[in-house]
Design a protein around this nucleic acid. Structure first.
Lengths: 150, 150
DNA sequence: TTAATTCATAAACCTAGCTTTAGGTCAAGG
DNA sequence: CCTTGACCTAAAGCTAGGTTTATGAATTAA
């Protein structure tokens, strides 16, 4: 089964120009062409899925290219590839934690402005922060203000 | 209590050049200066904490500036500000979900290459995918391959 | 036959969010 | 008194990751 660039673009919600850009970057080293026109096979589709995952885990284009190159080298690069995924796992884990801290701050701020709207001003709030905050709210506040462990 | 730009830079692990850039963007509209030199007060420090949160929730510089402007307009912009934080909460929630899907893919890939290393090739793996995958692994696989609900 | 689609390339262009550079002020220490 | 270090500005520069433009070929639909 083969797909045209336009079909792949629709399937993945990726602009055609981006697919061509990825191709230029060497993401599809063995893609076939029929009189110059690209034919995406299952191989390219699978590549695209992995690329998507690596992009979401914030890997740079160049490093994704490195991974593609490893793939072509076969069994002798299994370890490099595993290490890459292990690393990305750690990175994403850390990012989720960061975002959860951000969520706490956002929840706190939502509560804060909800109160401000009710009161018409921030006077009562200023008296509460941080020791007299409601228990639940203080949890968000504290989480958001935790020190970075860099 | 006042801080110099260098002290703030250390406290927040933000380059001095970036702080000056933020200032130029209007993030510290009421910051004092003593013969041209910036003095960061508690107000600016608090601004910086919120900016940090909004940046982590992927708000653009221009929109952060908008928020700063709202803050200066006082009580009549409480709703706009609350709405902004509500929106960012939704965005971050969605992003965490996305990242959890990415995590599943990464876990699956780690397992995959672990197996490939053990076997020396991917033959056995190809026979397992997707129906004969171990239960735990299939969970990651399925999660990672769920359709986007766009 | 003509018009609309879909594909192709190379190269220029774009944007956000900084960062660097070049040139200068000012206070403290040796 | 001179050097070092921390600060200042304006303006140019940078980078990733695409996107747009200009140009053209091949296919299909009316």
């Amino acid at each position: 089964m083969y797909y045209s660039i336009g079909e792949v673009s629709e399937m993945f919600h990726i602009p055609i120009s981006t697919l061509r850009y990825y191709d230029k970057e060497g993401f599809f080293p063995d893609m076939e062409r029929v009189s110059g026109i690209r034919r995406f096979s299952e191989r390219e589709i699978e590549t695209l899925r992995v690329v998507d995952c690596l992009k979401k885990s914030k890997l740079e284009i160049k490093e994704i290219k490195q991974f593609i190159d490893w793939t072509r080298l076969g069994a002798k690069t299994y370890e490099e590839r595993r290490n890459l995924f292990e690393q990305q796992k750690k990175n994403v884990e850390k990012e989720i934690e960061e975002l959860e801290k951000t969520m706490s701050m956002l929840k706190y701020k939502c509560w804060y402005y909800e109160q401000a709207i009710k009161d018409g001003n921030e006077d009562k709030l200023h008296e509460m922060i941080p020791e007299r905050l409601p228990k639940e709210v203080k949890k968000w506040y504290d989480h958001a203000h935790e020190e970075e462990t860099k």
